[in-house]
Design a protein around this nucleic acid. Structure first.
Lengths: 143, 143
DNA sequence: ACTTGACTTTAAGTCGACTTGAGCTTTTAT
DNA sequence: ATAAAAGCTCAAGTCGACTTAAAGTCAAGT
């Protein structure tokens, strides 16, 4: 596959694919003249990468998950990541419940609603920071 | 409360509090000479902000949630955010299951494991991008 | 032969969310 | 009275994840 096909199949721009290759997250199978050629399995790998990104892992963390050198080390890490995700899911669930409640709550301010404040406290246990805005993927850009 | 107390209570550095104030996410109740003074409710508001951040909302989105001007508009938006979160939670759950499975899977490569690949596909439906790395909060910095 | 369009590289730019530094003022402790 | 600690403002810097621009290469169609 050439880069445009992979881009289309994965929904990622070619620039991102080059960037990922440079970071070692994917590999091209060789060159066709100048041009990279990829084999089809890269599309699944990209799906996994996108998934990992959407789960809040950084590219570096995802790269770690791909190093299948020490099988035990790796299994342990995968479990650890899963646990981390579990905590995140709990928080998001609390947040979601808080939002749903806020949407119907009669209290003049959410800060005056005991139910909401309780959710706040529950959810705030394992807090962490997250830098940027979530953007929708634009699978195709025409310009 | 002065800024240091709020910082301690919220786990956020003073610089962040000033930054949030500048963005209109929080307000100081006045000045004590030069110094800002906050009333205690700001701590809850900050908890809510942190929670929102950890749920993947940008500061701008969180600011939107705080504008309780049009009650209907706002309720609709809160519901919309909750729905968005629901989709995220679904994805994260799939990702977590994928990771847990990968941690025990016998297949030589995860890409050769049908169970894993199925999870991939399920999880990849509503994909979105998320820019940065999650960092732990360091509540105290000594330098 | 030549233009077009897809691809290439490298460097620089962008974006959100903060952080850091410089230089000043004010409060507090000795 | 004075020095350290804590605040302040404003500008600039940082970080991760890409994106964009500039300038060049190359195969294919007219």
């Amino acid at each position: 596959m050439d880069i445009a096909e992979v881009a289309k199949a994965s929904g990622l721009p070619a620039s991102t694919l080059r960037f990922y290759e440079e970071k070692g997250l994917i590999h091209s199978s060789g060159r066709n003249g100048l041009r990279r050629s990829f084999n089809a399995s890269v599309v699944e790998r990209l799906a996994l990468i996108s998934l990992g990104r959407s789960a809040g892992f950084s590219l570096d963390e995802i790269a770690e998950m791909f190093t299948f050198d020490g099988p035990d080390i790796n299994r342990a890490m995968l479990s650890a990541k899963a646990d981390k995700l579990d905590r995140t899911i709990e928080e998001l669930t609390a947040m979601r419940d808080g939002l749903r409640h806020a949407a119907v709550c009669k209290a003049p301010s959410h800060f005056e609603c005991p139910k909401f404040l309780r959710l706040l406290r529950v959810a705030g246990k394992n807090r962490f920071r997250q830098p940027n805005k979530l953007k929708e993927i634009k699978p195709k850009r025409s310009v």
